[in-house]
Every structure is written in structure tokens, then in C-alpha cells.
């Protein structure tokens, strides 16, 4: 589904990604682990095309398309989703308005009609319920006054509503207590299908207890230095990055 070849990217003057290769097929869940500063979040932001992240070499191909030639919103329209490590607060914009604008924007990009208000509400209510989110929170401003756990749950609701082909989840597990982790994990597992792919970026093994990855990668200094099955995560947890990588 997505193929990354020899990806080099810099932020400002410093090169963060230094020749990264990664291929994820439909139906697969991959996890990237690695120490702070390895470039994990840079990879996530670069896949989405954030403007401060400059690709200097290499390619990202998504379902045969050159992703790097597309704007961020176009990449999302193609079916990519980024779950934020730090979800952004937007005072003055309600969650519902935000979700509807997002959903209809991606539909329009694909040449589809806007979704009717009734159908939209039905879907959002159902997804919020699946993730045990209080429906009242849908009326509140996006992430304003939400706890860390509520924000991550909100990200997961957004993912469920947008239903992407490929989701990149940047430390979705950070800041979650054990109950919230379980709920968010259920949300991720619901998105796991034969026709979707998921890339989880995480520091810890514990998310991987709930969402079992097909492949685990170790990222150090802008490159993937080792890949293996889910047992690799356990090994990392035990020995640390230095010994494994």
C-alpha cells in the first residue's frame, strides 16, 4: 500500500531522516519503536507533508501515487490519516463542525457528494459510542479542555469517521491510563482490515499488547536498523535499544 524508499528529510538545517526504507502492505499493522530523537515523529509528519519538513531525497509512493507531489489535505483525501501525538485545540470550532468539514472535504476530494446531516450524525454518534465518548463532547470545541486521554480518544473517533486506508498513529498511547488504552486499542483494532494498513509509532510495548503488530521496526538516527515480528518489541523492552539495534 505504501512504499518509502531512501527517504531523507530535514527540519531547518538538520537532517533527521537519513535514508529510510519501509514498505507496508494492505492488511498489515507495523510498529516503529526507537529512542527519543530517532526521527519517528518526523517520519509521521513527512508522510503527511507538513511544511517545515523538507524532503531532500527519496520517495513515498501510496497506492502507486507519488505522495510527495501532493499537498497535505490531498494526501488525506487519498486515504491517509495521522493520529497526532499532541492533538491541537481549536477554540471556537465544535468537534461536530470539525468532523463534518473534514469528512466532506475528503469526500469532495474523491469526487463524492457531501454527506447529509442526518447520515453524518448517525455515523458520528455510533463511532463516539464505540469509543465510549460522551456525546456532549462532540458539541464542545475541538480538544479545548479535554484531558490527555480524551484528546487521544477524540483522535480515534476522527479516524473511525474518516475511515482511512492507511493510518499513522504517532504515540497514540502516550498519556492514556489503562482503561483508555484499552478503548483506544479497540478503536485501532476496528480499523484493522484486509484493505487497510496501520503504522503505530510508540515508545512502549504496552500498546502492542492490545494491538498486535505484524512487523516491528527499530528506528535509530533516521533509519530503520532492524525489523522483525512482534517478539522484537518484547526484546526491546527487555534489553533496550542499544543492545538490540
Amino acid at each position: 500500500m505504501i512504499t518509502i524508499k531512501n527517504l531523507h528529510a530535514k527540519v531547518g538545517d538538520s537532517e533527521i531522516l537519513k535514508g529510510l526504507d519501509l514498505e507496508i502492505k494492505a492488511g498489515e499493522v507495523h510498529a516503529i519503536m526507537g529512542p527519543n530523537g530517532a526521527g519517528k515523529s518526523t517520519l509521521a509528519n513527512t508522510i503527511l507533508g507538513r511544511s517545515d519538513y523538507e524532503v531532500t531525497e527519496g520517495s513515498i509512493t501510496f497506492e502507486g501515487k507519488d505522495l510527495l507531489s501532493l499537498e497535505t489535505y490531498e494526501r488525506v483525501g487519498e486515504g491517509i490519516f495521522l493520529g497526532f501525538q499532541y492533538p491541537v485545540e481549536i477554540p471556537g470550532v465544535s468537534n461536530l463542525n470539525f468532523l463534518r468539514t473534514a469528512l466532506n472535504s475528503t469526500r469532495r476530494y474523491r469526487g463524492e457528494e457531501d454527506m447529509s446531516a442526518a447520515e453524518f450524525m448517525k455515523i458520528v454518534r455510533a463511532k463516539a459510542k464505540d469509543l465510549k465518548m460522551d456525546p456532549e463532547m462532540l458539541k464542545r470545541f475541538v480538544n479545548v479542555g479535554f484531558s490527555g486521554g480524551e484528546k487521544k480518544r477524540n483522535e480515534t473517533v476522527q479516524m473511525a469517521v474518516l475511515n482511512p486506508k492507511f493510518a499513522v498513529l504517532d504515540e497514540t498511547d502516550s498519556g492514556l491510563d489503562i482503561d483508555a488504552l484499552r478503548i483506544v486499542s479497540d478503536g485501532i483494532n476496528a480499523q484493522r482490515r484486509d484493505d487497510t494498513a496501520i503504522l503505530m509509532i510508540t515508545h512502549y510495548q504496552r500498546l502492542l499488547d492490545y494491538v498486535k503488530p505484524d512487523v516491528v521496526h527499530v528506528m535509530v538516527d533516521g533509519r530503520i536498523v532492524k525489523s522483525g515480528g512482534s517478539e522484537l518489541a518484547l526484546e526491546l523492552e527487555e534489553k533496550g535499544y542499544a543492545d538490540v539495534a
Partner: peptide
């Protein structure tokens, strides 16, 4: 940051700006 967040949810720049102005 909010503009990028909206872009990362598929909202085109013009519309994202309009939404933030409206807010």
C-alpha cells in the same frame, strides 16, 4: 498548528482558514 491539524484531516487551505476565522 491548527491549520496543519485541519489539513491533516483533509480540509483544503482556503476552507481551513475560513473555519479558523469563523471561530
Amino acid at each position: 498548528t491548527a491549520l496543519f491539524y485541519l489539513a491533516a484531516r483533509g480540509v483544503a487551505p482556503k476552507e481551513a482558514r475560513a473555519l479558523l476565522i469563523e471561530a
